[in-house]
Write a protein that binds this DNA or RNA. Structure first.
Length: 259
DNA sequence: CTCCGGTACC
DNA sequence: GGTACCGGAG
């Protein structure tokens, strides 16, 4: 349950996850249920959440959990990191929020807080070690939630230091915020994204959405991807979908969701 | 139009 | 270390 919600929350705002999580968990209540079927219904159920590769990864993770962990989500860092689509953040998020273990997560919000707290840009290892050192062993769940909230509401891109309850201990604030903001470029802090309109991602998204309703023939591919006059681009980009396991060739040479 | 969010792969 | 990968809200 926590694993699915954390995977959904990757690169996706919580407000959009809340209404999708319950129907998704009703369709796929257990790793066994998801692992038994093909990936196609998982992709369809993921529709609209973005980054469809996460759906493929989740299906593969479900199979691995069934095959190698008797259907139970692992409760140790190494095995969690071995699951497809599970990285440093999600693995620790499962340990903290599902198993209530004394671990520290570093997402984009916490990465920003840590960099300003230390007053300098941090590397991946540095940020994780700092978070590990700071985490409350009394209430790790609440600590991580509080830090994420601090980053999401106060220690934002343009920080609201006047509202910050811990500014007196923040190196960057205490130093008078003289140097440049250490947060951009620091570990886990998100970077600007290229625009979606007109991107390859838009065509990928359009095709996967269409394929959820049924197969698409070779000749219909450019239209389905939104590039009716650019068959070359359609064929170049559909290769990336084949590589990602989001699309497969049907028997008649067209395209469909993987069976 | 800008903002927001981790992982995998090179 | 840089880049590709989605979509909705404000």
């Amino acid at each position: 349950m926590i694993l699915v919600s954390e995977l959904m929350l990757q690169q996706t705002q919580a407000s959009r996850v809340v209404e999708r999580l319950t129907p998704f968990l009703e369709e796929f209540p257990t790793p066994e249920g998801m692992a038994q079927g093909s990936v196609a219904p998982v992709i369809s159920a993921w529709n609209g959440l973005g980054y469809n590769r996460r759906a493929v990864n989740l299906h593969r993770a479900a199979r691995k959990i069934v095959d190698e962990h008797r259907g139970a989500v692992p409760d140790n860092l190494g095995d969690l990191l071995d699951l497809p689509g599970v990285g440093p953040y999600t693995a620790r998020a499962v340990l903290v929020f599902a198993f209530e273990r004394s671990e520290a997560v570093v997402d984009t919000n916490i990465g920003r807080v840590l960099a300003r707290w230390e007053g300098r840009t941090l590397g991946r290892q540095e940020a994780q070690e700092l978070a590990d050192r700071l985490v409350s062993h009394d209430d790790p769940w609440g600590w991580n939630q509080a830090l994420m909230e601090l980053g999401a509401l106060i220690c934002t891109g343009v920080p609201q230091c006047v509202e910050c309850p811990v500014s007196n201990s923040c190196r960057w604030f205490v130093s008078g915020r003289d140097g440049a903001d250490p947060a951009p470029g620091s570990a886990a802090v998100s970077r600007r994204q290229s625009r979606f309109d007109g991107s390859d991602r838009q065509g990928r998204s359009a095709l996967v959405r269409t394929l959820s309703a049924g197969p698409v023939s070779e000749s219909d591919l450019p239209v389905a991807m939104g590039w009716p006059d650019d068959a070359e681009r359609a064929h170049r980009v559909v290769k990336t979908l084949l590589t990602d396991g989001l699309v497969t060739r049907s028997e008649d040479g067209g395209f469909e969701l993987p069976t």
